[in-house]
């Protein structure tokens, strides 16, 4: 009987230790369970496809793909404010981890906006061009810059470096599908 109790205790210690380790590396375990290879680029792609691709860096990583790689290594899934709850839910489903609320220390989930340069104020310093992660701002040194609205992800990264504060984040223009009529919402 003492032998049995010892065996059960040892087994229990082993199993609970294993479960605890599993919970620590649950993402990684999922990853290997699903991929089975050291090369995990396919899995990172699947995570990356769920991210909103705003490349805003609010999660603390320089772009969506770096964050996807970090998630595959076990980073929290609630660091993406532009994606908000829908993204968290999809990530949780993909990784089989619990749904957690958005970590608002990285920002709030806001409707999509686009950058707009007050062009008469622009001094042509090209700092915003360098900051833009998707090359959505065109311009040349000492010349006026402008935002390509359809390319802008609304990431806010160009606002901070502007020395004259001439960049505004405006609500996304409303685009109706069939006629492709673009209307600007007015307050």
């Amino acid at each position: 009987m003492i032998g049995a109790i010892t065996a059960v205790t040892v087994l229990a210690a082993l199993v609970f230790g294993f479960a605890w380790l599993m919970s620590k590396f649950e993402h990684a375990a999922n990853l290997h369970g699903q991929q089975g290879t050291a090369e995990n680029s396919l899995f990172v792609d699947r995570i990356n496809n769920l991210l909103p691709q705003t490349q805003c860096g609010q999660c603390g990583f320089p772009g969506c793909r770096p964050y996807a790689e970090a998630i595959s290594r076990g980073e929290n899934i609630n660091r993406c404010p532009p994606g908000g709850m829908p993204t968290i839910k999809r990530l949780a489903a993909l990784l089989d981890v619990p749904v957690v609320p958005l970590d608002t220390s990285h920002g709030w989930h806001l409707p999509k906006r686009v950058a707009s340069i007050r062009e008469h104020e622009c001094i042509g310093c090209t700092k915003c061009i360098q900051a833009c992660p998707v090359d959505a701002i065109v311009g040349a040194p000492k010349r006026m810059h402008s935002v390509i609205v359809s390319d802008c992800t609304g990431c806010d990264l160009c606002v901070e470096p502007c020395p004259v504060d001439c960049i505004d984040m405006l609500p996304m223009p409303l685009i109706t599908a069939p006629g492709m009529v673009t209307l600007r919402m007015k307050k």
Partner: peptide, 19 residues
Amino acid sequence: SPWWIAASGIFIACIFGKH
């Protein structure tokens, strides 16, 4: 059967059978 049979049985069922 002695009590530890039942205890180790449910242990096996819970851990190795399910979780």
